[in-house]
Design a protein around this nucleic acid. Structure first.
Lengths: 323, 323
DNA sequence: TTGTAGGCGTTATCAG
DNA sequence: CTGATAACGCCTACAA
């Protein structure tokens, strides 16, 4: 049923029906109410494509993410997406989601150049992510990048684990700890440096253990430090799994947590709230990242290519009982 | 740039350009190649809405989920969505995602009655989920329901934790265990009954402990059973957190896992692979649920309202070292 | 194989 | 406040 047939059936012109649904206002209250009522009865609704075609605008945002995520678990993507989607939902904006793989370039073009969407959020990390961004740019569709993409700092939202590590360091120094330690992968420079920054003067005493990222690695890190005669009174672990392993080993060794040893993890995985004692941890605010990405879409771009600078999302220090 | 301007600029008619992008075949190879090349150069792409309007079909699926999920963590929704999205992606179909809240009904109508989508996946559990389904039905848009919705069994995909519990029971009876136990919430009837079914004759010996759902609850369940003189040699816990708590308590008590006590959890949360010994568990195949929901969309509906029956997704028994 | 013309279902403009 | 009419950009008979 289209507007013509519907309008004829209820005895008004198509234009009047259109006005009843629109927000122009040039319609009497009574007519509108009658039309809306009849529309409900007949199940009439204006055709989505015809409307967007004539208006030449649309209200749908696309969210593109790399199909295979090597470095981050899908959980990260999901949470970021949920944040973006909840922000979009508040703005009554549906989100079109699509994973990027080698076959996606046609779809990207169809959507972006074809005028199907009003904005694009791209999670960096694949060749096609760059393609999506450059497509958006060349057809002047607003876009936002999650993660690092060369040359796109002005429209990016970045994780900032270094900041979270800094908060942990500051917490240790602020609660009178004297001999801190850092346990994690050697490659994770941002966290390490942030931790030292937060530690302040205490950073000179800081011990390090660079191992793996599993539960067992956490336990063996404790043993390794112990065998070296290092007895830290506070430790930041690069993830919660390491922290739980470390804590278990320490408890087995008769150490009291948090009295003799404060432990902070990273990521806030679900089990962390249930350890004994419950694990304090640094939570990456993934939802906030998604929300920020969405809000970047409607933000003004700097004039003349002016750089607004990357939007860095701060972590949150979740203090439970282990520190 | 529209088809008219583009076609004029490269010296062919609009119809020819249209044929170059379409699959009708009525175009010479050379012309098509030249057109595609120029399109690349000019960044031309047919307008999405005009195309869908004239064809009066579209290839986009909507995924509606309840905004606030009380009983299940968002993780469930995310995983189901990822499954649906990956199936859709293989079919080159973008997915429009939107959380359902009280303001969503207008959007639902716009999308479904307005012809914006070719199928709807609805996660049951809110008033608007029912509304979305009835809208889809009355405008004959294919739909699929995830979870239980009254009267919609024919087009639903259901979780089946009972089946997973059955697998656990069968595993225990098949590996020579003699005194099984079940630890979990009293309300979780499906799991309990499935477990007993899988246990077979052994089910007469089965002990029960109905407590909470946390780590501590798992530990205290062990103590409670012990104080009653019950020493199970195999236990199924209603979730992994309980199982980890139970296992910790048992190990502290000097029990050897899995030799003297086999433990199976439920859900396969991330930390389960890192416990010591790694936890065996029943994994709800959430991705599969999403995939099945998508494939239901293109499946034929039974003629004359014939019921195809709910699609039940089986769980997977992940055997690690604890059982 | 290519071009011409009509129509898809709306909304915006212009009279009345 | 309402109705007729011209776009919006494309696809598809039909004609050439």
């Amino acid at each position: 049923m289209n507007i013509k047939e519907f309008s004829k059936r209820i005895g008004v012109s198509a234009a009047t029906v259109s006005r009843a649904f629109g927000s122009s206002g040039r319609i009497s209250r009574g007519t509108r109410e009658r039309i809306m009522l009849e529309a409900e009865r007949f199940g009439y609704r204006g055709n989505y494509h015809a409307r967007n075609l004539i208006r030449s605008r649309v209200r749908t945002v696309a969210f593109f993410y790399p199909e295979i995520v090597r470095r981050a678990p899908d959980h990260f993507i999901s949470e970021i997406f949920l944040g973006a989607n909840s922000a979009a939902s508040s703005a009554q904006t549906p989100v079109l989601v699509h994973p990027l793989n080698d076959d996606s370039s046609e779809l990207i073009k169809d959507l972006i150049f074809g005028g199907a969407i009003s904005g694009v959020i791209v999670v960096a990390g694949s060749r096609l992510a760059n393609f999506a961004v450059s497509s958006a740019k060349s057809s002047s569709v607003p876009y936002a990048v999650v993660g690092r993409m060369k040359g796109e700092e002005a429209r990016s939202v970045l994780f900032d684990p270094g900041h979270g590590a800094m908060l942990a360091g500051r917490h240790f120094s602020g609660t009178g700890r004297r001999s801190p330690a850092y346990v994690g992968g050697i490659s994770d420079r941002g966290k390490r440096e942030g931790f030292l920054r937060g530690l302040g003067a205490l950073s000179e005493n800081c011990a390090f253990d660079f191992g793996g990222t599993s539960f067992e690695d956490g336990a063996s890190a404790f043993l390794r430090l112990k065998s070296l005669g290092v007895r830290p009174d506070s430790v930041l672990c690069a993830n919660d799994t390491i922290a739980i392993g470390f804590m278990n080993a320490a408890l087995s060794d008769g150490i009291s947590v948090p009295r003799d040893l404060a432990i902070i993890g990273f990521d806030d995985i679900s089990v962390s709230a249930y350890t004994n004692p419950p694990l304090s941890t640094v939570r990456l605010n993934l939802r906030e990242i998604g929300r920020k990405a969405f809000s970047l879409l409607s933000g003004r771009t700097g004039e003349q290519g002016e750089v607004a600078g990357p939007e860095k999302i701060e972590c949150e220090l979740v203090l439970r009982a282990s520190a």
